[in-house]
Each structure stands twice: as C-alpha cells, then as structure tokens.
Simulated assay, not measured.
Amino acid sequence: MRKILFALLVLGLIASSCGSKKKAARKRDAKKHRTVRVDPKHERKQDENTGKRDNKAKNGRFNPMTISSTEEYIEIFAPIAQDEMREFGIPASITLAQGILESGSGRGGLTLKTNNHFGIKCHRGWTGGTAYHDDDEKGECFRKYDHPMTSYRDHSLFLTSRSRYASLFDLREDDYEGWAKGLRKAGYATDRRYPQKLIALIERYHLYEYDEQVLSASGRKKRHQNKREKTHIVRRGDTLYSISKRYNTTVESLKRTNRLRSNTIAVGQELKIR
C-alpha cells in the first residue's frame, strides 16, 4: 500500500512540474511575440491619425485670408502694393486693381486654394507650388503660394524679369491708364476689356491716391512732370547692361553721363539717360 501511495505522489509531482514548465514556456512565448501582435482596429486608428498629421504638416505653411469686401481687400493690401511700387516702380494702383480683378477681391476659388492674387500661370522654370484650374483652357497650371504677400512679390518679379513688359517701365509711375493698356498689349490678359476694367476699378476706389502718396513722399512726382528729362530709377535686378539695352545705349555712355567709376548701382538710384 505504501509503495502505491509513494508511486502516485511521484507521478503527481512530475505532472505538476511539467505543467509549470508548459505555462512558463507559454508566458515566455507570449512575451516574446507581444510587440508584433496588434489589434487591427488600433492599427487603423493609428494610420488615420498619422494621415491627419501628415496633411497638417504639408499644409501648415499655407495661409489663405478671409476677406469680406473689396474695401477690406484694399485696406489690407494697399501698403504692400506701395512697398512694391517703391522697390520695383510698378504703380500701386495697377497692382491693387489687378489683385482685385484677378482674385475677386481675395474671394475667388483659385485664390482661396492657391493665394494666387494675379492669375499667374506656372510657365517654364517655375519650381514652386502648383494647382490646376480651368481658365482659358481646361486644367491649366497656376502658381501656388504660402501667403498672399508672396504672390505680390512674385507679381513684381514677373513683370520686371520679362522683356515683353520692359516698355511699361518707360511710362510715368502715375500713368495708370498707360500701364493698364500696356499690360493688355504685352499679353498679360486675353480679355479685350482688361484695360477698361482696371481703369474703372482705379477710379471707382481712388486707387491712384496710393501712387500719389509714394511719389510725393519720395520726391519723384516732380521729376515725372518734366517729360524732357529722361531718367531711370534703379530697381531690384537692374544692371548697367540691362538698362543700356532697355534705352538703346551703352554701358560706357551710362557711366560717363552719370560719372560712375564702376558698374555698381543701387536700388533707388537715379540714372540719367542720353
């Protein structure tokens, strides 16, 4: 009898030991593989959140403006247009009128998704943001900007860097009628009534007053009234060579006339042209 009890006790101990080892092994296996077993619902939730963060990061720098009226548009962008006039010589009235017309006073569909206030298309060499919009043709490529102010600066660079607009800078800076007609003639817009629309906006909202403020403050208005005196105000990007080509003269002639000892010129400098 004792032998039988002893044998049962030994078998019980062996079984208990094996069970503990199996449980321990299962625990180790579960711990080992815990990091690779993911609840599918949790995984989908993580993917959705990641997608939201990615979209926010991509669009984080895009800052469209909410504008309620043309008057508010003018109030916001008139100082910017005047700054561009001081640096590049483009009438603030023209810049504002184009901005109002092309952007629908900042409320147009293209402007709201691109911050493009001047309807400037991508063109060859553009490396910035882009968006596609139906215009003269379906699905045309337009430039996209982080902020409307960048659109204003690009408008100035666009006009000053293309030779087809060079003749506009021979006009007085307060000659908004000449600028409006010149833009259409140079191919800025296909609308035949583009000049009339710009002029109407300038006169309706008295945008020419912003030109007068810039010219009066800088003393340039008086000089513009003397049509016989041909001068050039140096703008950003100008060189003596580019100026000489614009006025059909030579670099040496410009240097002699203006008593320049080198080819260095500064923005805002007045050069006499002969």
Rank of each mutant, 00 (worst) to 15 (best):
K41V: 12
A189Y: 01
I67C: 01
L13I: 12
C122K: 05
D211E: 00
S218H: 00
R235H: 05
K181M: 11
A189W: 01
D170E: 14
N258P: 11
L101T: 07
K230R: 15
K144N: 02
D191I: 03
R236K: 10
S262N: 02
E84P: 06
I67A: 03
T95D: 04
K31L: 13
P195R: 03
T130S: 11
E203C: 11
K138W: 11
L207F: 04
K23C: 08
I243L: 06
N116D: 06
L201V: 10
L260S: 03
G187P: 11
K185I: 14
Y194L: 08
G237S: 04
T250E: 05
F6M: 15
T264W: 02
S151H: 09
H133G: 05
S16H: 11
L96Q: 09
V10H: 02
F142R: 01
D47S: 14
F169V: 09
R236P: 03
A25S: 12
L13E: 06
S103L: 10
K138T: 15
F77L: 07
S68Y: 15
S218K: 02
A200R: 14
P40K: 10
F142T: 06
A92P: 07
L13Q: 10
T111I: 06
I100T: 03
A131F: 08
N248Y: 12
S93I: 13
P64E: 06
L159R: 07
T70L: 06
T66V: 14
E177D: 03
H155P: 04
S156N: 00
I100S: 01
L11A: 15
S167P: 08
A186F: 14
G119A: 00
S20G: 10
F77D: 01
E71C: 11
E48S: 09
G106M: 09
H42I: 14
S262F: 04
K138S: 14
I243E: 10
I94R: 03
R53V: 14
I202A: 09
L11K: 13
T50I: 15
D154V: 00
H147D: 08
P79D: 02
S216K: 06
S105H: 10
L201S: 06
R28L: 06
T190I: 08
I90F: 04
G51K: 10
R193Q: 13
T66Y: 14
A166T: 13
R220W: 07
T35P: 02
K41N: 11
S69L: 15
K58T: 13
I233P: 06
L215A: 05
R204M: 13
I14Y: 04
G60C: 00
I90R: 02
E72S: 10
S20N: 13
A25Y: 10
R246M: 15
R153T: 10
L159D: 00
H117N: 09
S17D: 13
L254W: 03
S69Y: 13
N263P: 00
I80Y: 08
K113N: 12
T70Q: 08
K52N: 14
R143E: 05
K245V: 11
T114W: 02
K27R: 05
S262T: 08
S16Q: 13
N55E: 14
E229V: 09
A166M: 09
E84T: 11
T190P: 06
K227D: 09
F62C: 13
G128S: 02
Y241P: 02
D146V: 09
N59M: 08
T250A: 05
T160K: 11
